[in-house]
Nucleic acid binder design. Structure first.
Lengths: 246, 246
DNA sequence: TGAATGCGTCTCGGATACGAGACACTGAGA
DNA sequence: TCTCAGTGTCTCGTATCCGAGACGCATTCA
């Protein structure tokens, strides 16, 4: 088992902490949040600023994220085959159905929005790229969970305490989830209406390629039939699956 | 002057290196590229993998970027006022002119693409988000350089050695650049045709808000008049400027 | 099959990195 | 104006972190 590298770990935790803040924060705030010695925090932040991962705003006495964090994040998108292969099919989906679409991956019990393709005339979505949401509340997450083996889903959601709610709806127990996922599995797609954001609905289909846990979804302001959207979404997910299998 | 934090710096350099690779790479390759001791590289990579910034692929004996790098990169977009404020105006610009648009910031002598809004039916651009290009070859970069004080431009481009070329065109000396920027300044916008990618042209206008060096651009397959696009681009840049000044 | 190469892990010793705490400076509030 | 709180920088001493190098294992090639 390799040994710890405490300063490296601290740097990465600083990045993660800062990326969760809406505004730049003070060094002391960072030190407290990560339980770092105050003077060490200054040395660390300065080293990170020297590499452009952090910026110091002396007038405000705050520290914020630097441009290198942004660049490195996009390096991930270029390296990750899923993100690379999915971009064009997703663009085609949007052009075809005229609604915004996204590519989502599962991480633990949450989904992470990897690509968002906005449709013309539609506002940017709450499900902004980089955002995490509880998997069981989103169509995207449900589509992925439905494609997982039962024991794996059980390991992720062992009891009622595993369930969070955003708008008061959505499954609240393993039994409810299992029933919901059985329906999803049978249909081959998942839906969600108002469980993430009131007034918005989604339909999602899983990408089924070995160890990749991801899905394609379309989101729109809910007021009507999902029927027209299911086939394009499923075809897009199938196309991405095919591309991944080469 | 605070002291170095070598392990933190090494971790960040690993991230930067990995983000520039098209595929995951071996630990030895990373160690060589960054001049790290081999055994230290393993400890470092493992610590980074424990924080999800790096992933180990044991079957391939390679190491690639992890999902935390992606998330942190998007935390930057949420925290950076420019990226946040520009998203809706840029979406409106695309809906209005029917061409893809982007928001660009200057970093040294390069521009960095921060937001890309793809227009319906248009292919994804070579100027993908997270990509850097030489500022003097792009409309976006020229618009920003034209809004800088003369001595600052001279400091960035002191001599002929400062100039790179991608397609054999574009300014090659400080004198040529100065002339080009004078025209740009007079018109209030910059253009580029085939200097980044043959067959594509751009028009860009600067965002002028204090210390922010950024611009808005529209890109299209070049074959005709720029005239219809200039006003919408300039208005979008002016709107973003206004928002930033509140 | 055996040898070579490369990956990953481990131990040891010493020097470098780290935390504690002090100091200087600045800005805000009484 | 003075005081206090908070930010940023610095020194010192020590213990923890680091690099060197060895070892084990797996894969590939002759």
């Amino acid at each position: 088992m390799p040994r710890p590298v405490p300063a490296a770990t601290a740097a990465l935790r600083v990045l993660r902490f800062l990326s969760g803040q809406p505004v730049p924060v003070s060094a002391v705030r960072i030190a407290e949040a990560l339980e770092l010695p105050r003077s060490s925090a200054y040395h660390l932040l300065t080293a990170m600023a020297d590499e452009d991962f952090v910026v110091h705003y002396p007038d405000d006495r705050t520290w914020g994220m630097g441009i290198a964090a942004w660049e490195v994040g996009h390096g991930f998108a270029r390296q990750e085959p899923l993100a690379r292969l999915a971009r064009v099919p997703l663009a085609r989906l949007v052009d075809r159905v005229g609604q915004s679409a996204h590519l989502v991956v599962l991480h633990g019990t949450e989904v992470l929005y990897v690509i968002e393709e906005r449709a013309p005339g539609r506002p940017p979505l709450v499900t902004d790229v980089g955002v995490r949401l509880p998997a069981h509340l989103t169509a995207s997450g449900r589509a992925i969970l439905a494609s997982l083996p039962g024991p794996q889903v059980t390991a992720l959601y062992p009891d009622k305490a595993s369930f969070t709610s955003r708008t008061g709806s959505g499954p609240r127990s393993p039994t409810e989830l299992r029933r919901l996922l059985a329906t999803t599995r049978q249909r081959g797609y998942a839906t969600e209406d108002g469980e993430v954001t009131a007034g918005f609905a989604s339909v999602a289909a899983p990408i089924e390629a070995g160890t990749i846990h991801a899905s394609v979804a379309v989101t729109w302001q809910s007021r009507g039939d999902v029927g027209d959207l299911v086939e394009p979404v499923r075809q897009t997910a199938a196309e991405i699956t095919r591309r991944l299998r080469h």
